[in-house]
Every structure is written in structure tokens, then in C-alpha cells.
Design a protein around this nucleic acid. Sequence first.
DNA 1: ACAAAAGTGTTAAGAATACACCCATGT
DNA 2: ACATGGGTGTATTCTTAACACTTTTGT
Lengths: 224, 224
Amino acid sequence: MEYVYEAPVLTVDAVIFQLINNELNVLLIKRNLEPFKDTYALPGGYNPKGETTMKAFERVLSTKAGIKKDNLQLIEQLYTFDTVARDPRGHAVSIAYMGLTRDPKIKESSDTEDPKFFPITKLPKLAFDHESIIKYAHERLSSKITYTNAIFALLPKQFTLTQLQQAYEAVLCRELDKRNFRKRIMALNLLKPTSKYFTEGAHRPALIYSFQKQGLETSPQLID
Amino acid sequence: MEYVYEAPVLTVDAVIFQLINNELNVLLIKRNLEPFKDTYALPGGYNPKGETTMKAFERVLSTKAGIKKDNLQLIEQLYTFDTVARDPRGHAVSIAYMGLTRDPKIKESSDTEDPKFFPITKLPKLAFDHESIIKYAHERLSSKITYTNAIFALLPKQFTLTQLQQAYEAVLCRELDKRNFRKRIMALNLLKPTSKYFTEGAHRPALIYSFQKQGLETSPQLID
DNA sequence: ACAAAAGTGTTAAGAATACACCCATGT
DNA sequence: ACATGGGTGTATTCTTAACACTTTTGT
């Protein structure tokens, strides 16, 4: 085994989700380099020696999209893809991470590449296999919110039950029964009611809740 | 971004499971190099440029443990770990794969490092973070067999319902009710009965079954 | 005849689903 | 007073879990 070892190119790709107008959106940039120049793609970049994959993810996200890691409430590694013909230098390996945010400040900088959020139902044509990576991330997220409180990462710290339900519906892409949803979510004891109400429009104000804990918790079968 | 790019060392680690005497076993080798010389570890090795991670996994498994990929009925990528202080050359990234086998021929060769199967309940002290990687793999496998037919990869092509149940029990590390198990498994239509019986010992012979399909299938909630 | 594993149904409890009206507010 | 979304309970169906005896064979 002790020949001269040369490692493949290592990259990271970022799938950043956010809720906008009760729709799940994903962050894309427009590539300014070949291949796939001017095509939309997930933010991604090289992972050099000495930098952990997580740090590379954070750096790439910051430089390419102007989003800092403090704006991500949850980060999860998804999968590692062998990418052929991605990099002009040949075979490359790419680690995909998913990040959830509730309201990122996209800071323009010299190095950003026109970062924008797109509803997952209306994606433009994408570079590489990024469409399938997004699909994979979406499935992971859908399943994750059914057995954890991961949805907290997409919501403000305080929210009404209707907002919570809409967040679930946006991720799962289907409607949920209001009474059954509330019954279940309350039975899990993940939420705590505040004493505040959210008044908006000509109707009864909604009680505001927050999560008991901010971190990720696993609970027995939230939604099925 | 166009500084001189140098990639981290990339390695693959293999978690190979097999059933022996109704116990789930995992393949380990004894390391013949520092660090952790003479300590048991998962088979692993370098992934050079130009080789896909899957190919590297197959090659490493073959050279370090003498197991060929044809002996693996199912392969699944698990997770990618940043490994600090693993490689004398510094920061390394390691991709863990899981492989399931029903009866591997471990072929001794000059390069193998004393490969042996150990029951997961009786593991020796392990190098690096390999104990947690095995735990992760075990959890993935446990969950996988509850919503797919992945268990086929650990069983011979033909088997009795008792053998099937024992395989589930070995992976899940808990006992299952015979009548409920059979009811459920039969309801899924994954199995087809042969017309043969397995006679062994002084008792009623058991009908032999096989899976309808050899490949991986997802089915709605097999076991809970 | 006996020992040993194969095979087989029913009942009770719990979970999921479907569903409709009153409440509090702004205009 | 009316329009709007907030908030609540029950009945039914389906799923899961618990449980014991008969069958077939070898010795």
C-alpha cells in the first residue's frame, strides 16, 4: 500500500432550506465558472486538507452565499457522492450537507454568486446531479420531522399552532387534519404555551407557543 | 479560490455483517501498523484519486480481508467521518460502508490482516472510533430491516420461517412473537413458499421459503 | 409414548382517522 | 352583524399485542 498516494478532489455541497410564504425553499447560486456556467446549482466548493468537512461547509456557504453558520439552526450530513466529470481535474468526491434556517441574512460580498431561494416545487434547471441531491435532502427532512422536533429549525422561536402545522404541511407537501395534528403535537409535550397572543386580522387571536428545548429531540412518531 | 489545492487524505472503512449461530457478527482485522498496532479494527484503507469510493471499498475489503464483492448481497454507504489523528499525515476523511453477507469465503492472502468475525455483543477493544461506527451501522441495519426486505442479504436463498424470525431477532436483539411475526411477514407478499421441507431432528419438518425478489424492496412497515 | 419444533386464530387494547361547530376578534 | 381564522371532542376503523394448543416427525 505504500505507493505514492494522491487523494481525490474533495468538495462539499450545501442544501439550505427555508420556509418562505408557507413553501419550502432551497438556496441556489448561479455558477460563474464552467462546467455549467450560468446554470443554477447548490453552493459548493473545495475541501482542502486540514479543514474538517463541517468547517468547509460553513466556509463555502459563507463565501458563496453570504450565510453564516449562526443562521443555521440545524446541520446534518446527508450523503457522499462520487461525482464524475464535475471537476476538470477528474474524479471528485462530494459530501452533501443539509442546513435549516429560519431567516438568513444573505450578505452580498465580492465572492457570492447571486444566491437566491427557490421553492422546491419550482426549481430551475440545475447543474450536475443537484436535482437528485435536493430530492434526497427533501426526503430526509420529511422523514426527520416525523420522528424529531427538527421543524423547530425552520420556525421562529415563537409561533402559533397554525404556523407550526403549515410548516409541517410545507415540508411534507400534504395537508394535515387540524384537530388530529393538535392532539398529537400536544401529547408529545415538546411545546410550551406562552401567555401571549398573536392578533392578526378580523378573527380570534392565536395563542403563541415555543418549543420546550431548542436542540434536536427524538420523539416517538410525531406524524405518520 | 484558486490557490494551490491539496486534498485531505481519503479513506474507506468497511462494516461487514454476517449471521453466525443466530448472532449478528461483524468483521474485524488486527492492525499491523501504528497507530493502534495489534488492536482490532474495521478493515479500511486509502481511497486514491481516480477510484470511486465504492471501488475503494471493494478493493480494501478484498485485500485486507480476502472477501470479494460477489459475497456481499447488499452494500450501503453509512456516513462520512472526519478523523483526526488517524493518519500520521494529519486530518483525514473516512467514508464508512456497510456490507451484508451470508457466507463469505475469507481467502487468506499475503496482505490480509487476520480477519475474523466477532459477535456484536462481544467485541474486543477497538481502534479509533470504530466502536461507534459499528453501533451506527447496527442501528441503520436494525431500522432498515423494519421497512425493507434487507434481511434477505443475511440469509441463504432458501430458509424456514423460524430461520427468518431468528435473523430478525439477532439483528434487533429482541424476541418476536411467532404468530404475529408470521402473520405480518406473510401479509407483505415478499415470500414465496417452495414445495420443499426442511427436516432436522425429532419434530415436524418446516416448509422452506424464498424471497420473491432478490433485490432490495421497500414495504410498508414490516416490524415495529 | 414422548419429546421437540412447526404451524395456526381470536380477543382486547390502543392508535389513527374522519368529521362540524362554537369562539374571539376587526371591520 | 358578519366574515375570518382559532380552538375543541367523539365515534369508527384499523392496527398492534397478548396468548395456547394441535400437528408432525424421530427416537
